[in-house]
């Protein structure tokens, strides 16, 4: 599981995160929701150890992020916003490159790449250069790349943006499959409809703070008669009033 305790981060005069606390459990899909600029990406960047928080503590499984970032990275798979594939490498090479940097032995890494290519239906494009891929294909390859070291935790930054209906459906399927394997999946989004059917837990973040969290059922119970969309809007605009 991922445990975030009172995490803060400033960029110059901008307070991007202000005491964020939440947890994402194993075998669950947790949605980090918020409007653009709410601090979702900063939060995911801290979780993926690319940047360091100014204050607070993050644990990934049993590992403290600040104390052992290299160990924590082995436990994390990251699907960045916009895939970030190498255009001159083939789908397979992109996946294998990350496996190699994760220190997987060569036979195991070939075998894993092959299995992921089969599972994600990438057979037809596996040996084509990534530069011609559609957004859906890129996301698939990036997902395969993030899973090559079989991480317990998966971080996805706006995974559905730019995907068409079918690709979005497939992505949901795979995320449910990862959940069924007992993995901890944390994804960010700024559109409630995209995730409300998928997530087990919701963390709504606005103005650098967690304004609301809980399961969809809990939230519906707490605000009877209001849709998740309406609850989201209220949670977000409340924070905006608070900051202004």
């Amino acid at each position: 599981m991922i445990d975030v305790q009172n995490v803060s981060k400033r960029f110059g005069a901008v307070r991007a995160l202000d005491g964020v606390t939440f947890a994402a459990g194993d075998g669950r899909i947790t949605g980090l929701l918020g409007p653009n600029g709410a601090g979702k990406s900063t939060c995911l960047r801290i979780l993926s150890t690319v940047i360091k928080p100014d204050g607070g503590r993050v644990r990934v499984g049993d590992t403290d992020l600040a104390a052992a970032p290299l160990v924590a990275r082995r436990l994390l798979g990251v699907l960045p916003h916009g895939s970030g594939l190498y255009p001159q490498l083939t789908a397979r090479e992109n996946v294998e490159y990350y496996g190699r940097l994760h220190g997987l032995p060569e036979p195991l890494l070939k075998q894993r790449a092959e299995a992921l290519i089969a599972r994600l239906d990438l057979g037809a494009i596996a040996d084509r250069k990534a530069k011609g891929f559609s957004q859906g294909e890129k996301t698939k390859v990036a997902l395969a790349r993030a899973l090559v070291h079989e991480p317990q935790h998966l971080l996805l930054d706006e995974p559905t943006s730019g995907l068409d209906v079918m690709a979005t459906r497939h992505l949901r399927e795979w995320l449910r499959e990862l959940r069924a394997q007992g993995r901890c999946v944390l994804l960010s989004s700024h559109v409630m409809q995209e995730v409300e059917a998928l997530v087990d837990d919701l963390v709504i973040i606005a103005g650098g703070r967690v304004t609301l969290s809980g399961t969809p059922a809990e939230l519906a119970q707490r605000y009877p008669g209001r849709s998740l969309e309406e609850i989201f809007v209220a949670a977000v605009s409340g924070a905006e009033h608070a900051t202004t």
Binding site: R73, G82, G84, P87, Y98
Partner: peptide, 14 residues
């Protein structure tokens, strides 16, 4: 620019 730097930096290497 290709957005490949960020995922690269999440790998368990210095």
């Amino acid at each position: 620019e290709r957005r490949s730097l960020e995922p690269l930096l999440t790998l368990p290497v210095t």
